[in-house]
Amino acid sequence: MSRLSHFFTTSIGQKQLMAITGLVWVLFLIGHLSGNLSLLLGPEAFNAYAEFLSSQPLLIPVEIVLSIILLTHVFLAIRITIQNRTARGTKYMHKDASGANFASRSMILTGLLIFAFMIIHLMNFKFGGYEDHDLKLYGLVMEKFTHPEFSLMYLGFMLVLGAHLVHAIQSVFQTFGWNHPIYTPLIKRISLALALILATGFAYLPLWAWLIKKGGV
């Protein structure tokens, strides 16, 4: 336990925990997107995938663990932000970002937006009553996304997710101590690509449902 508190109470320890918890969720996102792409294959495939997931006996424990990890990430983010604001004290009269990009400066903002989005997302789908729908989850998804404002909201949030991930993924490597003049630029490019794939992948689904399939089956 003392080792855990060592990580929780030191600056670099918190940083490691942020990276590890974040990384778990990046992996989750990769899995989630791969699964979600079955939407493109039609109701049978998608609903079978959803059915497969919900029938797993470990689903609940995994969900609990993921939630704890997420809450840790959020809790630490908030605490770090407060610590960091305190560390600055008086703000500069004349501000200049000193080379730091928007994504890296806005992690707390994009992070909190993503957290809010996750609640909305769960309310709409996981707890959106898809069992009652004719076409189960597939039907619910297609129906929701035909509402332009709903789809647009999703697009907006995916933009935010992209911004968060652009900084987050490559940052993990730095935090774990992997920085090398040759590999790091490569890692940054791969991170950027992964962030783009995840954000556009997730953004493509509502667009597809709304504009291409027009909610149809």
């Binding site: 030191t10 600056s11 770090i80 000193s98 080379g99 890296s104 400066r105 900084h167 940052s171």
Partner: peptide, 17 residues
């Protein structure tokens, strides 16, 4: 940490300046 410095969030501003 005790001295009250903030946490590194890998923004790289330090390297630039």
């Amino acid at each position: 940490d005790q001295e009250g410095f903030g946490n590194c969030t890998n923004t790289q501003a330090c390297e630039v300046e």
